[in-house]
Design a protein around this nucleic acid. Structure first.
Lengths: 138, 138
DNA sequence: CGGTATCCATTTCGATACTG
DNA sequence: CAGTATCGAAATGGATACCG
């Protein structure tokens, strides 16, 4: 009802048929976006592109540890989902830059909300992990 | 500064050192939560548990297509992160129920914000995918 | 500069069978 | 009822080399 709900967690529209049909679930946009950005490199990439336009190698240098292959794959993925636009400038040698599309920009606020939650509750998450791997001497 | 920012996407606190150090990035709580819930079954599981407490087989029946093994793994994962609490009742046969912890409940609003975004922009995402796999006859 | 192509290790997922 | 054990398939990620 309300344009943005903050107190009532809707999660997939506010209702859920049970059993949840697996086919629908897999095609659910919420599932898709989480799987899209839940991989190793998408989040940093989006975070950087949220700040400015990057050239390929500039991005490569900006993300420590990423291989050329994975950077390409990550960018192509985000591009295929409409979050990133790839622009080739016909110079010699050719230069390519990447920027967020308006759709990509619109993703940042909700993503930041999740990020804020994670930062706030990071200690609790870490504590839970520690408690889980050390079920000894209580 | 503001308790919840909606217009300025902070993403990991509002600044990013470049190059982004891979070790820090991997330990970043934002990365961790995304990878945690970015798998195949965590989102539905959380969505269901957000509604009520479930017994194991009840959950199993409620999620079409999930195997016993994956349900167990998913629940154990969420439990190890402190989002879900597992309670064993010493009856015969033993019954076990799962519910969200307060931490798990606190995750629902930001997750719903992302879900709302996905639902709103689902058509655009789908259109981008279609345009990407059909780069023919423009 | 901005990629591909190849190959391999690791992880994830799912099916099936069995258990206290 | 609520799992565990085992196995194999598939997806994911990374290293290296090469290309227009």
């Amino acid at each position: 009802m309300s344009p943005t709900n903050t107190d009532v967690p809707s999660l997939v529209g506010g209702f859920l048929p049970t059993p949840v049909p697996v086919a629908e679930y897999d095609r659910c946009p919420v599932t898709e976006i989480l799987r899209l950005i839940g991989d190793r490199w998408s989040l940093v990439t989006l975070a950087l592109l949220g700040r400015k336009t990057y050239r390929f190698n500039e991005l490569h240098r900006s993300i420590e540890g990423i291989s050329q292959r994975m950077l390409t794959r990550t960018l192509r993925n985000l591009e295929a989902s409409g979050l990133v636009r790839r622009t080739v400038h016909p110079t010699t040698p050719p230069t390519v830059d990447y920027r967020l599309t308006p759709l990509g920009v619109s993703l940042l606020p909700p993503l930041s909300a999740l990020a804020d939650w994670a930062v706030r509750h990071g200690p609790e998450l870490a504590a839970a992990r520690r408690a889980a791997v050390l079920p000894a001497v209580e």
